[in-house]
Design a protein around this nucleic acid. Structure first.
Lengths: 302, 302
DNA sequence: CGCCATCCATAAATTTATGCATACCCAATC
DNA sequence: GATTGGGTATGCATAAATTTATGGATGGCG
């Protein structure tokens, strides 16, 4: 027996995401679920209303007129939901202490520095420690309190929260590209200079997985400080990898089309079950959550 | 592993219901789910926010200060959701035809007449037929298009929608009670005159189940028209049963405490799967839904 | 003071929804 | 015209939620 259930409020959030992003897959990424799930939920809404809300195109989902009419109240709902969430967050008590955050080396370099800067400003009473490590066991051994991971931890006794995904890209200074020339189709990217990391192996491994046999020395300029790394790229020392959303907004930089696909980085926050209620932990968690949400793709919602 | 998931919008609806009705059970009745479900969802919200939202009393759930602070944005969400639902409903095409609605005899007498009146006014292009019958198979044999039932149908190939519950009560005119005297504790209610139905047996059976051995003649005044029935009660012909929410608002009437509990009437809308997309059906369904929602308990939401 | 109704919390059983893998479609590109 | 990359739809095993069925606790009422 089919049940034509009352429209669930959660479904409206899904409707919004699909309408705004134009595809089930993109909406699924924003919401941290899979594409079939989003598809089925959209189907349920159309079923419930008896109206076609999207026309299925090869390029994605195009909202019909009916769907457009629903957008305004849906956005009003989101606004109210945000307000509610903020109100709730404001009710949690605050207190000092030290919070240790662990992330992969890559995330520590590429994502965390500006986040930590804002965290210092927003919660000066809390001391921070950043543990850059690719070991995943830190939380269990209590070497850190909160982990930012690029996968969903499967351990017991931890609490996780999906944040979103960060899109990476390859960028170079306009200056440099003027000198070295823009890449032609089929061109060999290896002829360019690359800015790399000194101690970190991830970039090297990434290149090797893509079929380019390079070693650490391949990167003609190396630096372990992310802020400096980025300045080296902007100064024209060579091509470098960074967050696409940030780099694209930089007028001095130009995106370089890659021959292969860079993985998107999903972000998961994790905290051990037993300590997550401590006020300082809650506070850091809340700020991390907000900042990372703003960084992750699909954050145009606010 | 525990997942501290993003707050789901549906949960806010639950929060609202519990805060407004003051108990898990009442909220569950309004939402058409069971009490443990509501309890767990409230738990999940508190978990997510890290704040106690309700103090558990024996008499129910009392909202804490934190919960009160969330009420205003939550109501804003509900308002937006209502607007969205109305917008969506307005998008369905309209067309004439005849729609047959079947209900139990009891519902046909007690609930439907004013609903049908409004339905006539709102959709004059649709002819209506009311089939009062306690047989549950009408839909299968296609004797009717839409059924209003006091239970959730379990057949295949039909679509159902929970509406809410109607509370019944025993009432008498102030006039009449002045004459006959108010009942004392332990008093025998049978000494009063009762207004009953002529052809309907449900009231008789109800009395028998409550331990009073009465027959049809016990009802000193009888009438098969619900509107007239009610006027007879208001005129002081005796005590009569009716919708509590309506009767309590009537200054001429007084509620008479009963020695036993009257069952609440849950309301389910049902339509066969294959015809529910026909415009006239959709239209009648939408009006029935709106009207019955307004009648059912817990409708103070609008 | 015991009875009874109402309420919440908890434990098994079942329904429901989700994720994964895969097939398929279309457009752009070489 | 094959290939690649992005999208959507579907079948099935699994995980998650709900229902159902209990028990315990409290307050009203005779």
């Amino acid at each position: 027996m089919a049940v034509l259930s009352r429209l669930e409020w959660s479904h409206i959030e899904v409707l919004l995401a699909v309408a705004e992003l134009g595809s089930l897959s993109a909406a699924a990424r924003r919401l941290g679920v899979t594409q079939p799930t989003v598809g089925r939920q959209i189907g349920a809404i159309e079923e419930c209303f008896g109206v076609e809300l999207f026309t299925r195109l090869a390029s994605g989902m195009e909202p019909t007129e009916a769907a457009m009419a629903l957008l305004e109240p849906a956005r009003a709902m989101r606004e109210a939901a945000n307000k509610l969430e903020l109100t709730a967050a404001g009710r949690s008590e605050t207190a000092g202490g030290t919070v240790r955050v662990t992330t992969s080396v890559f995330i520590a370099h590429h994502v965390m520095p500006p986040v930590f800067a804002r965290l210092r400003r927003l919660a000066p009473e809390i001391s921070l420690e950043l543990v850059a490590s690719d070991t995943t066991e830190n939380l269990l051994f209590r070497e850190a309190d909160i982990a930012v991971r690029m996968f969903r931890p499967r351990q017991l006794d931890v609490v996780t929260r999906f944040i979103g995904e960060v899109e990476l890209g390859l960028f170079g200074a306009k200056d440099y590209l003027d000198r070295a020339g823009r890449p032609e189709r089929g061109d060999d990217l290896l002829r360019y200079d690359f800015v790399g990391y000194d101690r970190e192996e991830q970039l090297v491994q990434g290149f090797r997985q893509a079929g380019f046999n390079v070693d650490r020395e391949f990167f003609t300029t190396r630096c372990d400080n992310q802020a400096t790394y980025w300045e080296l790229v902007r100064a024209g020392c060579g091509l470098g990898f960074g967050q696409a959303s940030i780099a694209r907004a930089d007028p001095d930089l130009e995106e370089v089309p890659l021959g292969f696909e860079l993985p998107r980085l999903p972000i998961w926050l994790t905290v051990p079950d037993v300590i997550r209620h401590r006020p300082a932990i809650r506070r850091v968690w809340a700020v991390l959550e907000a900042d990372l949400l703003a960084i992750a793709d699909g954050s145009e919602q606010r």
